[in-house]
Structures are given as structure tokens and as C-alpha cells.
């Protein structure tokens, strides 16, 4: 095990910096469980007469589903990007860690804006 000592002893973040992300990953995960089951059953089984533009656009244009979809996207993006951060922290121990975390910060914000400008102004 002596071979690993330097690797393990190296500073790899602190116990304080990740605790909120850890807790919020559990909270957002449980929220996604409910949201995903709702999404899955509505998209596949509820009143499914055929996958036409009219049927999907009518749902997509209603305020209730806009709120549902945006909530879903916010939780899913937070949970997913936070998960990618955890993977980066596990495997990247060089200066590239800052680069990759910054990269996925940008990707997350771009997709959040993309969701907002797609869902909110939709009229059908």
C-alpha cells in the first residue's frame, strides 16, 4: 500500500465544500423520481391516441405543463451536471479538473437557457 500513499495524501477537496451538493443530489434525486414517473406515464400511456403535433403541442402550450417541464429540466440538469462533477472529482486530479468543471458549468447554463427559451414562449 505504500505505493498509494502520495496519491491518497494529496489534497483532493475538502469535507466542507461538497456537503450541500451531496445533500441536494439526494433531494433532487427523490424529486426526479416523482417527476420522471409522471413524465413517463403521461408521455406513454395517458390518453395516448397517437403521436401527432396537435396533441403534443396542446400539452406543451398549457401553463401547467410549462411549469412541470421547467421544474423537471431544472432538477434534471442540476442532478446530472452535479453527477458529472462527482465523476470529475473522482478521476481528474490535475489542473484539468478546473477546466472540465468549468466546461460543464457552461454546458449546464446553455441547456438551462435553451430549455427556458423553448418552453416559455411556445404557443402551438
Amino acid at each position: 500500500m505504500m505505493y498509494m500513499r502520495g496519491f491518497i495524501d494529496r489534497y483532493q477537496g475538502s469535507a466542507k465544500s461538497g456537503e450541500w451538493n451531496w445533500l441536494l443530489q439526494r433531494v433532487s434525486g427523490v424529486a426526479l423520481l416523482v417527476l420522471l414517473l409522471g413524465h413517463f406515464f403521461v408521455e406513454h400511456f395517458v390518453g395516448h391516441t397517437g403521436l401527432t403535433y396537435q396533441a403534443v403541442a396542446a400539452r406543451f402550450a398549457s401553463l401547467g405543463w410549462k411549469i412541470f417541464d421547467l421544474t423537471f429540466v431544472v432538477f434534471a440538469l442540476y442532478h446530472g451536471i452535479n453527477g458529472i462533477f462527482m465523476v470529475i472529482e473522482d478521476y481528474v486530479h490535475s489542473g484539468w479538473r478546473v477546466f472540465w468543471k468549468g466546461f460543464f458549468w457552461v454546458v449546464g447554463i446553455v441547456y438551462l437557457v435553451l430549455a427556458a427559451i423553448t418552453v416559455l414562449p411556445f404557443k402551438g
Binding site: 440538469l77 446530472g80 451536471i81 453527477g83 458529472i84 465523476v87 441547456y111 435553451l114 423553448t118
Partner: peptide, 15 residues
């Protein structure tokens, strides 16, 4: 988890 986040990126782009 990694498959799902990359699916979300494709899914959102498609919509």
C-alpha cells in the same frame, strides 16, 4: 447516470 445526462442533452436539443 452518465447515459441519462447525455440522453437529456440530446432530448432537449431534439425538442
Amino acid at each position: 447516470g452518465l447515459l441519462l445526462i447525455f440522453y437529456l442533452f440530446i432530448h432537449e436539443w431534439a425538442i
